[in-house]
């Protein structure tokens, strides 16, 4: 089972149509260069304690973002056969890790979890 975070264009850069930031929320200027996006990705992965997951960084042409209609955030599972096995709805409302988990279990032939442990949907901002 392979996991990747695919780091894409900022959803709420301070110079974007819908800026967010301050009061403990990170402030990001929209990267213009891949190297800038790389550095933001590193800060993000570190601050959110996600470093165990390998991260890939979308090119500044946002091509992968476009192909997967990924913005602002989204979950996918590509099956072992190379086909899309699960395509989550766009975030934030559609970003539901429990759904990805269920899809992974189905793909791997694992039994369903009987009880939910921590509700992952709560554990955001």
């Amino acid at each position: 089972m392979q996991f990747f975070v695919v780091y894409i264009r900022e959803a709420h850069a301070l110079d974007s149509p819908s800026p967010l930031g301050g009061k403990g929320m990170p402030i990001v200027e929209d990267p213009l260069l891949l190297s800038e996006r790389l550095e933001v990705a590193k800060v993000c992965m570190s601050k959110l304690a996600l470093e165990p997951i390998p991260a890939l960084v979308d090119g500044m042409d946002d091509a992968v973002n476009a192909a997967y209609e990924a913005w602002p955030d989204r979950l996918y599972l590509v099956g072992k056969d190379g086909r899309i096995a699960f395509r989550g709805d766009p975030g934030p409302a559609g970003f539901q890790p429990g759904e990805l988990e269920a899809a992974i279990r189905a793909e791997l032939g694992l039994a369903d979890e009987v009880e939910e442990t921590t509700p992952p949907g709560r554990d955001m901002y």
Binding site: M1, Q2, F3, F4, V5, V6, Y7, I8, R9, E10, A11, H12, A13, L20, G21, M25, P26, I27, V28, V40, A41, V43, C44, K47, I53, N65, Y68, A70, W71, P72, D73, R74, L75, Y76, L77, V78, G79, K80, A85, G91, F95, L100, I104, E107, L108
Partner: peptide, 11 residues
Amino acid sequence: TPVALIFGSYT
């Protein structure tokens, strides 16, 4: 292997 993709950004 299957591949899970988690798309997102910091902000």
